[in-house]
Design a protein around this nucleic acid. Structure first.
Lengths: 223, 223, 223, 223
DNA sequence: GATGAATGAGTCTTCATTCAT
DNA sequence: TATGAATGAAGACTCATTCAT
């Protein structure tokens, strides 16, 4: 009847672009709904494909989740590792940079939602937790440990229990990022000043590590 | 009144005890499985009632979940400031004691599961998150802030950004307790030594605060 | 609005009767559609229950199928075993009776459809085949072997390879019953005379076994 | 004709060969998995074509299935009566030879899978069953009947109900071949000795037919 | 003609919720 | 009140079929 109407194809062939589009959609849905709560229908709809198409690219829900982690979080780790290798100058500055980068590229983004998700659902999906532990937590720990050990070796940091210190040092950032993805989304303390939080964290952690007493505390923080 | 009164009563427990028993069972199941993963069948079985009975006391799963959080968290709050008021001696010791207590009474218990659960489900239940923030996080923050301020005022601690420092100082414990409730249940690093972790935490945090160079580092860790 | 309409209950509670009703419905559907082709929706509808109800009584499709076999076929085996125990007189008569019973109670009924189903689907559902082999084929073989061995021991039958003979003797009946459940349903040879087939089978098989030559062949079978 | 002719042809195989290759692949898959269990993906892969190509030659799965049966069964039929015509000597030997041949050329081959498949699917494809009955079962029956009638006429066999005897005599072989294609694939009785089974079958059947007392029983089986 | 990416209806299974007893 | 049998909507996953390339 309407000759111009026949032009809309039922679907398009986009083999190369699909996986990325699906992963991106899946990231959104997983972060928003959690693992169990994420419906593959929703992922498909958001990616603009049909449900069946998901299974052309990913074996099942778990594989899709792992792909999300591998594609979005894991690449950050190698970036971090390069930054560390490149660095010259005091280790304390490297540490501050590391924390700042972590926050900017992970903690403040929706990727942090993945951490929250893993913590929330690891009880019911142990493989998820093990996967995240193996692919994200441990590698990221190795980076931080490396920095600490180098700083101690050079005499810049005092000797601390490195095996545990790396967890402790990053905990405030990790917890804050998780917090922002859950409770913080709805009831942010009105006056939360993120830069100031990051500064306070870096100052305290560097202070905890430095071999010599801290020299300068910004005057505006004096009570 | 009723001639049949001599027959054994069909239900023995008092109506008043039921909601509490159900909530207690639900706490266990929710902590163990998360919200979506918790099956009302399991809750009922653990409470020793039938599934239908749950609906006599709670409108639905969501209402039960809210009741659990409200009933189990509130009782936690009326403790702690007394210990602080009683304390004499160095503030650093008070701080170490505070952390040790927190871990023993909360972080290492099933109650930590509630934190995890709230974080996990706050996205779907915003009021829950707000409630937890208002009733748990902030009061506990006030205590810690009090200690820090007193230490700074007395010159024992260096001046730090108290408003943020309290979050930072407790984060490692909070995160560790949450971790233990999820991933840690299935893939604990084989050699995790909890006392050593607590010691490392207290050392680092006290080190971050002390105005004078650290004195308490064990000699065998010195380079 | 219509006061009399409220009388129809949404469903009835029939705990004891349900399993039997479901099994009966499942037998029909399985025989009609095969294992893979049987939809649990259809089973439920035919049993007059909802799909969920099936899962109150049977763990899954396979368990339902096994229940069908256990409830409908297995009881026949113990009946057969009793009949054999009760028998006195020539073994050839026992054998004729055994075959006649088998046909009447199994081969000519829709239970034979289960045999066909198992043969048809054992390739895709090996457990199904193994279950049937274990619960039906082997026990029924033991019965027949028992008869043969007793007949040989008494000198009534000539010595044959019992281990294989039992399969051979019953094959014509088994194959005919399977045939009737598949091809035979649509293209029965017009003049198939079942009693005559059964008689021919019994005559040949007894003839194959008897130590002495067969005495009487009915005159009307002569060419 | 076409200036581009010097380029390598994109498809090498002739159009005419395709249907046969597909049918051959489909035979394997159908025999292996049954109708419902056969995936067109597998058929395509085994035929070395894409799934879409199947639809160039066959309207749908059902049409492909029918083509498979029609193409593979028909060629089987133009054999056998010659062997019978050629034979001289006792009919019992002819019969033994007939059974041995049948097993070797059909019962023990993949073609037996077709019998199983037809029996399994005749319920859903009545025409298939009718076709098989008409084109395979009945012609093969005529051959066997011929042998029996000749043997009876010559006095070597006792007079039996030929019309039914031919079915009965071949049933054990037919059923065994079907069995091997389904349950037997997964749970073969450990000690099944096929030659011994064939010998037992021939002995029993010849024994059932011979007019005179059996002469051919091996001495070591005598009581 | 040939391909294979894309579709979407269909099926088993789970579980929160209802209601006859 | 208490029960637990019954419900039915929802979700992960499969695969025959279509169609843009």
């Amino acid at each position: 009847m309407q000759p111009t109407e026949s032009k809309a194809p039922r679907w398009e062939r986009r083999k190369d672009a699909r996986p990325g589009e699906i992963i991106s959609a899946a990231l959104d849905v997983f972060v928003e709904k959690g693992y169990a709560g994420a419906r593959l229908d929703d992922v498909a709809a958001r990616a603009g494909v049909s449900k069946g198409t998901l299974y052309l690219y990913f074996e099942n829900k778990e594989a899709l989740f792992q792909a999300v982690v591998l594609e979005t979080i894991v690449p950050l780790l190698s970036q971090g590792s390069e930054a560390i290798a490149r660095h010259t100058g005091p280790r304390s500055e490297l540490l501050r940079g590391f924390f700042a980068d972590w926050w900017e590229r992970f903690g403040s983004t929706k990727l942090a939602g993945i951490s929250k998700l893993v913590i929330a659902e690891a009880g019911n999906f142990p493989e998820l937790g093990a996967f995240f532990q193996r692919e994200v937590v441990e590698p990221s720990g190795r980076l931080l440990r490396q920095v600490l050990e180098a700083g101690i070796a050079s005499g810049e940091f005092r000797p601390v229990d490195v095996e545990y210190a790396w967890r402790i040092l990053q905990s405030p950032l990790v917890l804050a990022s998780i917090w922002n993805q859950s409770i913080g989304k709805f009831c942010q303390p009105v006056d939360l000043d993120l830069p100031r939080f990051l500064r306070a964290h870096a100052d305290l952690m560097v202070g905890a590590l430095l071999a010599a007493p801290v020299a300068a505390v910004p005057a505006d923080l004096e009570r």
